[in-house]
Simulated assay, not measured.
Amino acid sequence: MRTITLIIVHCSANRAGSALRMADIDSYHRSLGWIGCGYHYVIPTDGTIEPGRPEEMVGAHCKNHNRHSIGVCYIGRLSKDGKPADTRTDAQRIALRNMLERLRRRYPDALIVGHRDLDPQKVCPCFDVANEYHDLQPC
């Protein structure tokens, strides 16, 4: 069993309204020679929570942090004109919170962070994860 200390929120860097799904990310990551989707969960614009890589497997979503984290990715990040923005739909907001609540019950000591909190070169996921989910953080 892996020790999980981080739950990392990502975005896919697609334009708002993208029809991308976990299967598309899985195909792309396989084309890179990976064993499949690097995220453990993907949340398309309709708010469906799609499983990617099994939680017991190390992800491929955040350099230097994969061994001790779970990666959750929402589809979006770019506004219609291609600028970084929080493009989550209402359905994605609800699904992401529900997913994070479930993961916190499973991993009560894990911090919930955004990719950008671990790599200042990134803007992903285009919102302040720690602030938005402060009520879910460990005491």
Rank of each mutant, 00 (worst) to 15 (best):
I25C: 12
G114R: 06
A13P: 01
S31L: 05
Q92H: 02
A23G: 07
N64W: 15
R102A: 13
A60P: 00
D24S: 06
D135F: 13
D119M: 03
M57V: 02
N98I: 01
C126A: 12
I112W: 06
G76C: 02
G52F: 00
F127Q: 13
L32F: 13
L118D: 09
E50D: 06
I70R: 08
G33S: 05
G82H: 08
R88T: 00
S18L: 06
H10V: 04
V58M: 11
I49Q: 12
A19N: 10
D81P: 01
L20K: 14
E132T: 11
A95V: 05
R53S: 07
G59Y: 04
G36K: 08
P54W: 14
Y107R: 01
L96T: 05
E101L: 13
S27A: 15
I70N: 06
M1C: 08
A91Y: 00
E55Q: 10
T5W: 05
R97Q: 00
G38Y: 13
A130L: 10
C73P: 06
A16Y: 07
P54R: 13
M57F: 11
Y39L: 12
P44D: 02
G36E: 08
S27K: 13
V72G: 08
G33A: 08
H40I: 12
C62G: 00
C139K: 15
P138H: 09
R67T: 07
I75M: 09
Y39G: 01
W34S: 10
H65W: 14
R30N: 09
P84W: 07
L100W: 08
V129M: 10
K83I: 07
P138N: 04
L6M: 11
W34P: 01
L32K: 15
H40S: 09
R77F: 11
A19M: 09
Y107M: 03
I7M: 11
A85P: 09
L100H: 10
G82A: 04
H68K: 02
R30L: 15
R116V: 04
A16R: 01
H115F: 06
L20D: 14
K63H: 13
M22H: 11
G71Q: 10
L20C: 06
D117E: 13
I49C: 08
G33K: 05
R77V: 01
L96D: 01
I75K: 09
V58G: 00
A110R: 00
R116G: 05
